[in-house]
């Protein structure tokens, strides 16, 4: 992998504050330090794995809305899955036992860290990729994750899907990426649109734009 798993914490900080519910205000030196420490700890604990397959034409399960709309005009599609590994979950669990405030920050940092590493990794795949569209969002069914698991078999990178279609370990994601089509993540089709706490607070979740 020719990308670095060491990150510039300052760049991730706004997103982490967002996850913590700070919504752009109330940053404190104390929390900054905690975020720094958690990121450094993640660099040691996380075992980032990224798995993908690309297709010239979409696999069958994508022949329905909202995927067809998302993939319209794309020259190909990438199916991907990625995780920080079980040791992050283990560490998080211990922190919830020994140091709750740190645990909450660690959890937010882990989410931002996974998003960041995945974005960075995708830059090594190509420069004409859309954002990752994940089943369960944007009006799609979380049940479609099963197809992604059938295609990729991400068990080999230590991921599993439980009976309620949750991906394990908890810091794992899956994505459908349109190739040759620059699309931006937007709020309008999101399942949370209407009740989203980020929008109420005047911000958005990771990398989304209000449209």
């Amino acid at each position: 992998m020719n990308f670095s798993e060491t990150v510039d914490t300052a760049a991730l900080r706004p997103q982490i504050y967002n996850y913590l519910g700070f919504h752009g205000v109330g940053q404190s030196e104390q929390t900054d330090v905690l975020i720094d420490e958690c990121i450094r700890e993640l660099e040691k604990t996380a075992r980032f794995r990224y798995l993908y397959k690309s297709f010239d034409s979409p696999p069958e399960f994508l022949n329905k809305e909202p995927y067809t709309e998302f993939l319209r005009g794309a020259s190909g599609v990438i199916i991907s899955a990625m995780t920080l590994g079980v040791e992050v979950d283990r560490r998080s669990k211990l922190l919830f036992r020994t140091d709750m405030p740190r645990a909450v920050v660690f959890d937010a940092c882990a989410s931002a860290y996974l998003e960041h590493l995945s974005d960075e990794y995708e830059k090594t795949i190509g420069d004409d990729l859309s954002f990752r569209f994940c089943p369960g969002y944007g009006g799609s069914s979380v049940k479609d994750l099963k197809y992604i698991f059938d295609i990729l078999r991400p068990e080999k990178i230590g991921m599993a899907l439980n009976s309620s279609d949750f991906m394990l370990p908890s810091k794992s994601m899956a994505g459908i990426i349109a190739v040759g089509k620059k699309t931006v993540k937007s709020c309008k089709n999101c399942i949370m649109y209407g009740s989203c706490s980020y929008i109420k607070e005047g911000s958005t979740c990771y990398g989304s734009v209000k449209r």
Partner: peptide
């Protein structure tokens, strides 16, 4: 009122 945040709330609770 948005002057304190989740980690601080939890620290106080603990």
């Amino acid at each position: 009122s948005g002057k304190l945040f989740l980690p601080q709330l939890i620290s106080s609770a603990e």
